[in-house]
């Protein structure tokens, strides 16, 4: 079962991912982030990312959202580290293991110690998840 193939050739694997992220799978990143544009990520899921009903597991999608929004937050934090304080995730549609999940995120507000981020996950043109969260800049 194949939908129209999505060209991921512009995306490159994020080699810096370690631990749980590396275990769950390889996140890809689109390098062409222009000023004011959302950062773009991709992940190619497999059968180990499914739930018992054959759809992508909610925990897997929330893990992706935490990474997509969290990387965006940490880049806004500069040389400081920012950790997730809240993450709200809405499940708009079920995903499958039949094609890449694309993720985007943008910083909606940054204060001295907090970064507010919003993003979404899309598969085959279908919106799977909208997410928003707050990251705390550690030591700020």
């Amino acid at each position: 079962m194949t939908s129209s193939p999505i060209d991921l050739s512009a995306y490159t694997p994020m080699s810096a991912m370690a631990g749980f992220n590396a275990y769950v799978g390889t996140m890809l990143r689109h390098p062409g982030k222009a000023a004011g544009e959302a950062a773009r990520f991709a992940f190619v899921p497999g059968p180990q990312h499914l739930n018992g009903g054959g759809a992508l597991h909610g925990g897997f999608l929330m893990t992706l959202a935490d990474n997509v929004l969290g990387i965006t937050a940490n880049e806004a934090a500069g040389d400081r580290f920012a950790s997730t304080v809240t993450l709200n995730t809405d499940f708009l549609a079920g995903g499958t293991a039949d094609g890449p999940v694309l993720g985007t995120a943008e910083v909606t507000r940054k204060t001295r110690s907090l970064i507010f981020v919003a993003g979404e996950l899309v598969q085959g043109g279908r919106l799977l998840m909208t997410a928003s969260g707050i990251w705390k800049i550690i030591g700020a």
Partner: peptide
């Protein structure tokens, strides 16, 4: 521990 594991 990764937040994704806690949420899962």
């Amino acid at each position: 521990v990764h937040g994704g594991l806690l949420m899962t």
